[in-house]
């Protein structure tokens, strides 16, 4: 037992070198940049950009609403990369990456849905409707909730990682196809800000606005795009990966001490 005790700290350190080094400097920089970016983005969206003539203050939600959608897409895209790489190399780190992508993706997709809902209440006079775009967003969240259910249902870690990778690949295919199908359908009342505006649907779209109609809209959107679509998902995923590594190490240490 006493020899065990002496050996353990060294073994743990060699198994996980980043622990001794503490938080990597790049992550510290990234965290600071993200926090400052969020504050600056909020300032740009809430103060700097002019108030929308038609919709008033509630339009400011858009500066979070749209960038966060792309942030979720980035995170869920990372999941596919992680899944494919895991199936090829069988290295645990790729599965951890995939898991981080799903959790961050779900969180950001929920922010997207909630901000949209709050915006829709005054503009569409309803919290929710079964507009194709709203439906596809809801389906995306449910698909990845199923992914997490699947992970929770498997005890063997290797099987869990393998199945999660397979389902992650299957999930992105259907999510992308659903989004594509729904985007080409003309009967949406959701404002089309990015991408081709379907001609002949202007009368149906409710709550549309021009990107350059109000002062500072472009700048505020650009800043928030960098913050919410790039900085926030990457920072959150990084922390999630570190958390998973710590949890893994706790598991291993517990198993080791319970055995001895």
């Amino acid at each position: 037992m006493s020899t065990m005790d002496q050996a353990t700290p060294m073994m743990t350190e060699s198994a996980a070198p980043e622990r001794a080094a503490g938080t990597p400097r790049l992550l510290v920089v990234l965290t600071i940049a993200t926090v400052l970016g969020v504050i600056f983005g909020l300032y740009m969206g809430l103060v700097y950009a002019g108030t929308d003539v038609m919709q008033g203050e509630v339009q400011r939600l858009f500066y979070i609403h749209m960038p966060v959608y792309f942030g979720a897409a980035l995170a869920l895209g990372v999941t596919v990369v992680g899944g494919i790489q895991y199936l090829r190399t069988r290295q645990v780190k790729w599965d951890t990456l995939a898991l981080a992508g799903v959790e961050v993706g779900i969180a950001l997709a929920i922010v997207n849905l909630v901000t949209g809902s709050i915006w829709a209440r005054p503009i569409w006079n309803t919290w929710w409707n079964w507009d194709p775009r709203l439906t596809s967003a809801a389906i995306t969240i449910l698909t990845y909730a199923a992914y997490l259910m699947l992970r929770a249902g498997i005890e063997n870690p290797d099987t869990r990682r393998r199945f999660a990778a397979v389902y992650g690949i299957l999930a992105i295919v259907t999510v992308v196809i659903t989004v594509v199908i729904i985007r080409i359908r003309p009967d949406t009342i959701h404002p089309v800000v990015v991408g081709p505006t379907a001609t002949g649907t202007e009368a149906m779209v409710q709550g549309d606005f021009e990107l350059d109609a109000t002062a500072g809209v472009g700048a505020a959107l650009g800043i928030n795009m960098i913050v919410w679509a790039i900085l926030v998902p990457i920072t959150l995923m990084w922390y999630r990966i570190r958390l998973e590594n710590v949890a893994e190490r706790v598991q291993m240490m517990r198993a080791k001490y319970l055995e001895s």
Binding site: T143, A146, G153, F163, Y167, I177
Partner: peptide, 27 residues
Amino acid sequence: TLLATITVQTRARESLLPILMLPVALP
């Protein structure tokens, strides 16, 4: 067939298949 092969090897078995399959089959 693909998803049932997965769920039959999990703890929840029968209850997991609808949860996994409905979103994927939705389009």
